[in-house]
Design a protein around this nucleic acid. Structure first.
Lengths: 167, 167
DNA sequence: CCCCGAGTTCATTTTAGATTGAACTGAAAA
DNA sequence: TTTTCAGTTCAATCTAAAATGAACTCGGGG
C-alpha cells in the first residue's frame, strides 16, 4: 500500500506540517493546548472540510483529543460544521476571519476572567476596610482601588481591540 | 516564639493571601508561572520593600524560585530595586502603573512572538509557491496572505493597546 | 428490533515546564 | 587575606494539565 499514490496520505506534506507548527506555536501564546493548534492548523490549510477521523489519522492523535479539541474550537467560533455530504460523518471547516476568531477568544477566555476578577476585587475591598491599623487600611484601600482602575481599563480596551481586528 | 507578637510574621494575613491569590490567577491568564504571581502579589500589598529572603520566608518558596521570579519581573519592568537601606540585602518594590506593566509584557512576551511569527510566514510563503498543483498553490498562497494580514493587524493593535492602558 | 459505527466521556498515563535545593560565585566585612 | 552570606545556577524532582484509549451513548440503516 503506497501512500504516496493515493489521495489520502496519512503523513502531512511539508506545507501542512509547517502550517500546523505555526499554529501550535500560535495557540501556545494564547495558553491553549498544542492539539488545538494542530487541529486548527490542518483545517486552515485544507481545501476540503475534514472529519474527526481525518484529524485522528493525519495528526496521529487520539479520538478523545480530537473530539475535545473540536468542541473547544467550536465554542470559540473558530471551527464550524460544513454542509454535510452524503455520509454519516460530520465535516469541519475553519473560520478564517480574524474578527470572528478574536471575538470568540475574548468572549470565552478573556471576559470570564475579567468578570471573576471583578468579584474577587469586591471581596478584597471588604477585607481591606477591615484592617484595624488606619495607616495599613488606607494603603490597602488605595492599592485595591488601583486594581479596580486596571480592570476598568481592561474592560474599555476589549471592544476597541475587537474593532481594530475587524479589518 | 509567638509570631503574632512580632512585626515579621511568617504566615500571610488574610488580606495578603487574598491579594496573592488574585495575582496568581492573574498571571496564569498571561501564561506566567504561579510563583511570579505570588511574588508580585505580596510586593503589591506590602507597604515596605521586601528582600529575596522575605519572599522565601513568607511565601514558602525556594531561593531558586524567588531569584528567578524576581529576574523575570525585573525584565518585565514590574519590579524594581528599592533605594537600599544600610544592609547588604537588596529590597524590591512593585511598579504599579498599568502602562508600565503592559508595556513590559508586550515588549518581552508579545513582540518576540510576533517577530518569530513573521519570519515563519516568510518561510511558509516559499513553501506555498513550491506547490506543483496550481489549484493547491493558489489556495495556499491565499491562506498564507491571510496570515500576513493577521500579523499586520496584530502589529497595528499593540501601540493602540499601550496607549489606551496608559490612563 | 438489533446492529453498526461516529462521536463522547473520563479514569489513567504521559509530558512539559515549574519548582527545588545543593553547589557555586562574588563582594563586602572582619 | 579569609570569612561570611546574599544571590545565582542548573540538574534532578515534582506537578498540573494535556493526551490517551477503552467503555460508553446514541441515532440511522437494515
Amino acid at each position: 500500500m503506497d501512500e504516496t499514490l493515493n489521495g489520502d496520505p496519512h503523513e502531512l506534506d511539508p506545507l501542512e506540517s509547517q502550517v500546523v507548527d505555526f499554529f501550535v506555536d500560535g495557540v501556545r501564546v494564547l495558553g491553549l493546548p498544542r492539539s488545538i493548534g494542530e487541529i486548527y492548523g490542518l483545517l486552515f490549510i485544507s481545501q476540503q472540510p475534514l472529519s474527526l477521523d481525518d484529524l485522528v489519522r493525519r495528526l496521529h492523535m487520539s479520538k478523545g483529543s480530537a473530539s475535545q479539541g473540536l468542541r473547544l474550537l467550536k465554542s470559540l467560533g473558530a471551527v464550524r460544521e460544513a454542509a454535510s455530504g452524503s455520509d454519516r460523518r460530520t465535516y469541519y471547516e475553519p473560520a478564517v476571519e480574524l474578527k470572528r476568531l478574536a471575538g470568540g477568544f475574548i468572549r470565552e477566555q478573556i471576559r470570564p476572567h475579567l468578570e471573576s476578577g471583578k468579584s474577587k476585587i469586591t471581596r478584597l475591598s471588604e477585607t481591606a476596610v477591615d484592617q484595624t491599623d488606619p495607616e495599613r487600611r488606607e494603603f490597602a484601600v488605595e492599592r485595591i482601588s488601583r486594581l479596580e482602575t486596571w480592570m476598568r481599563s481592561g474592560g474599555r480596551v476589549l471592544p476597541v481591540l475587537q474593532k481594530l481586528l475587524g479589518q
